[in-house]
């Protein structure tokens, strides 16, 4: 890792990764739930760009459509409903154990990083096929070798659907 040739690709990817890391910190540290959510949206969009850089364009675009387009909109929706109903709830009290938690985070990062990252030192050439992330490859695999997990996920989504309707309805 010490004598790594600095290529334009590395600069671009490193910059995006740095921005994503800053956005992740923002999610945790912003006291305002809306700002946290916006940081998370930024993080997800940057992650999608990183997925594109890994040639996984199908999953990158799914990331934008599912996470930023649906899940985060749902989050914003709920935050705004709460903001409309009881804005005082969104002001958080500071947690007394936050310094301990941050210390724990630093230790976790250091520990796992020091054990994990050196093991992949020097790996900088992708081995997979360049079109391994295209819609054709994913569709073929998903509907042949992974058909059963796919069906299981569809059942899971159905259960989630029924569950959320049950929770949302006041009277059935």
């Amino acid at each position: 890792m010490n004598n790594l040739p600095v290529s334009p690709n590395l600069i671009v990817v490193g910059g995006i990764a740095g921005l994503a890391a800053v956005a992740a910190v923002g999610v945790v540290l912003f006291n305002n739930a809306i700002r946290s959510a916006m940081c998370l949206v930024l993080n997800f969009v940057l992650l999608a760009v990183l997925y594109f850089s890994l040639n996984a364009e199908m999953l990158g675009i799914t990331q934008i459509a599912v996470y930023t387009g649906a899940i985060m909109v749902l989050f914003l929706f709920v935050i705004m409903l709460l903001n409309l109903g009881a804005p005082q709830l969104l002001v958080e009290k500071k947690d007394p154990k936050r310094f301990a938690a941050i210390g724990f985070g630093v230790v976790l990062f250091g520990l796992v990083g020091s054990q994990l990252l050196p093991a992949f030192n020097g790996v900088s050439t992708p081995q997979a096929l360049d079109d391994f992330g295209g819609p054709h490859a994913i569709g073929r695999t998903l509907f042949s070798a992974y058909a059963y997990p796919f069906e299981a996920v569809s059942i899971l989504l159905l259960v989630g659907l029924v569950g959320s309707i049950l929770l949302a309805k006041r009277r059935i």
């Binding site: 364009e57 199908m58 675009i61 799914t62 934008i64 459509a65 930023t68 387009g69 649906a70 909109v73 295209g134 819609p135 054709h136």
Partner: peptide
């Protein structure tokens, strides 16, 4: 790109 229509859907969801 080979994800053209998905791109349209994703961006319009933004």
């Amino acid at each position: 790109v080979n994800i053209g229509v998905l791109y349209i859907l994703a961006i319009s969801s933004l």
